[in-house]
Amino acid sequence: METQTRKFEILRYRPEEQSEPEFRSYEVPCMPDWVVLDALNAIKDDIDPTLSHRWSCRMGVCGSCGMLVNGRPVLTCAAFVRDYEGTIRVEPLSNFPIVRDLVVELDDFVHKIQSVKPWIVRKLEKDVEQGEYRQSPAQLEEFKQFSMCINCALCYAACPVLASEPDFVGPAAIALGHRYNLDSRDEGNAERYDAMHGHNGVWSCSYANECSQVCPKHVDPAMAVNQAKLTGALQWTGILPKKSMT
């Protein structure tokens, strides 16, 4: 296969040498079936070893390689070079502080995931010897979509609310909390209520729907957030009960 040389503009930031991020250009010979991540690796291997970026599975499921390509948050392992015309601009995810080059600070994101208590909460835990909980395909279907999130954080990069309210719990975390609330095995939605419906919870969302536009796994976090608004409102009024383990 013939390679074709493509121009990449990559936002570089090396805090030990630069005070501010700036773009640097690279000419990269690309194979026709390359994804943007392949080009980044080619730069790292053969052109400039100082480029830092995260990646791992390169099949769209580990969630490491989210970046902005021509301004859109994408998984670079699933963004084909051939689908872009002219110069390709690669930047770290928006709405996250930049640690270095294309690497952003994710600890806050992980704390938000943790804040919604994304685990099964029950009054009584069944013993393993007693076998599985029965769950019908319909009950599974109710939350399945929201369990598909790979934590790639593209939705956080796209969310206009997070741009102005950095403390907003955010689409992925709320979708995950909602996923557990909808799980027939769970009895803990009261435990998640404060995180999901508190000051930085669902009501910060103004339904820009950007999260669902960029989600590579079709989780539709906007749907989760807005379903959670309805559930939360009904719980607040007492129409729907809060399930609690205490």
């Binding site: 099964i120 835990e125 393993v128 599985e132 909980y133 769950q135 599974l140 369990s147």
Partner: peptide, 21 residues
Amino acid sequence: KELTQLEHWGCPWSREPDGRV
């Protein structure tokens, strides 16, 4: 037993119509 334990922790195993894994 370990797979059942994962089920108890919320793993979304695919299901039969009667609710078994």
